[in-house]
Nucleic acid binder design. Sequence first.
DNA 1: CTGTTAGCGCATTCAA
DNA 2: TTGAATGCGCTAACAG
Lengths: 364, 364
Amino acid sequence: MDPRRRKQPVTIYDIAYRAGVSPATVSRVLRGASGVAEAKRQAVVDAAAELRYRPNLIAQDLASGRSQTVGMIVPDAAHSFWGSLLKGVEEALHSFSYHLLMASAQLPDGERSALDLLLRHQVDGLVLAGSTLADDGIAAIVGETPFVNVCRRRLAGTASRIVVYNRAGARELTRHLLSLGHRRIAHICGPLWQADSVDRRDGFLEALAEAGVESDPGLIVEADFSMQGGLAATQRLLAAGHEFTAVFAGNDEMAMGALLALDREGLVVPRDVSVAGYDDDIFAAFCRPPLTTVRQPLYEIGQAAVRSVLARVEGEDAALPSFATALRVRESTGPARPRTRARRRPATPRARAGTAWKPVSGPR
Amino acid sequence: MDPRRRKQPVTIYDIAYRAGVSPATVSRVLRGASGVAEAKRQAVVDAAAELRYRPNLIAQDLASGRSQTVGMIVPDAAHSFWGSLLKGVEEALHSFSYHLLMASAQLPDGERSALDLLLRHQVDGLVLAGSTLADDGIAAIVGETPFVNVCRRRLAGTASRIVVYNRAGARELTRHLLSLGHRRIAHICGPLWQADSVDRRDGFLEALAEAGVESDPGLIVEADFSMQGGLAATQRLLAAGHEFTAVFAGNDEMAMGALLALDREGLVVPRDVSVAGYDDDIFAAFCRPPLTTVRQPLYEIGQAAVRSVLARVEGEDAALPSFATALRVRESTGPARPRTRARRRPATPRARAGTAWKPVSGPR
DNA sequence: CTGTTAGCGCATTCAA
DNA sequence: TTGAATGCGCTAACAG
């Protein structure tokens, strides 16, 4: 049933034999332990090189009780948002000679089983991106294994979470809009069961309040962080006849959808309506017009998560850093038009318009 | 030095004791082996559940000689192109109860060391995305470990490669452009040391040839698959005064750059110039205008890669599937204008134009 | 069918 | 400093 159980071609025993020392000494040398005669050390190193020795980490792990591996759970690697985080984590791990065991999972249940799988693999620590589980829920299944949350989707619990000052970021962005003369600003927020969505919306509202601008509940709509969702939300806004001169989308993907929806209506950005996003996603600078947005240092956040987890793996009690955001003003935002209701130009007739924005986007 | 070498809280010995059987029997039951009395089976299952037993895969691996793990190397997880592939691989692996050890690496050297690391971890197989290494080079370092290449960047070697009919895809897309009346079509190709780039360019040229349209070398420029590169390439094309009514970019990212460059010149797509991309990236349907492109089933390719690798891990000699592409006609392509040289509308003055396309895109 | 005996490859006591 | 012995948790012959 089992074809060929591959055995290690060369082990420390081979090296020991060749170098004329004991396996224990080989182990010491290979692991950089002190207290080995230089002559033997060299002999071992040479032998290992000549034999093209490749350490068996699995064996090392079992013997040492630590796997040199960190597990990461990502909701959807196909989106550059998560991809950036993933990249940061992977590269940081690499620099510490740790390995990355990756799992993707969206539903809470999938997350739980993914966690379980990762733990079976004896990961030393965990980086959870976009988790929907609460801290205690996670702790219940991971036990002592250190973990840190990044961009979590749960409102409660900050103990394990790297926080990004999203409220401040949203506030700054909104102030920018206000400074351009916008008063009726629509906000497309992400799912409100997610911490980030709520934070950004709150920041938005705070900025309005501090400027003495009354917020119109009708101008706040919820979507799902997808381009499709942003498109639909904007269409709803438009259809409802709400007047607004700017749209602040909770992320760049939704902003992109908004741009498309506005275009469909013959509205020109930023002449008729300003649009802003959030995240400074990989494509934000290349939209037309390039998108005003708020940069979240995802890559750096990923790195910080790793540092924090590894520190705890080493037994140190690492504090979780927080991250500020940075406003990126580009061309999708401009001065508010004097008339509140944006003027339309006749939409260009399109034969294929009906199918144009079908969700052909992602793979699968 | 070593804080707490975590030991397994509950092992098969504990279960054996509790269920009143031998560890071997526990192992059998847990691994679903046949030939165990139902009574004992049940006892073991119950004991395991009560003790909340979590198998130690590391130990299993060491004992069985197989790690239930596949390694994947990705050039850049922050791009949805690679992300889609990654997602396909991960999910397929998951469905086979395999794990994914991920490594990112761009330079050949990084790739080599990444491979080495993965092998130290005793991965059962490898999926290499966008590899710059030749088959024999890879084999030299992985030995017997099965591997498959996906979207490789090397021209030579198809033995390990899942091929996508990119030439046919490019041909079909070009025919579409030709059918719209375009005769002077610019092509922004990817790096010509990459198989995909060459294939697509060749498909482009073939379609022109079969239509009896002479190709103009001046209309073919090389870029690096990035948005920034597409922007710059298009600007070069424009600056050189080349006349063209359509642009076929080697991938969607470059197409997006092209859209921006054309916009900067006051050219309207598709009225003045048609633009087409390749990949059907996650944002393609949401550009303005939505991008005509060629879909590559990346997710499915990832899955196929997994099936193939795992089959070989099992000792079967799996053939590598090939994939066709699908033309996605959207709104960025339209009939060619009668006059060859596209007409411009005065570019709108922009204060921030200079900084607008700075490479603020990726993280890092 | 089931238990006993050996390892898997390496780290790590403990003596020497 | 170094080597011999023991074990990490589990699988896999081998007997019984």
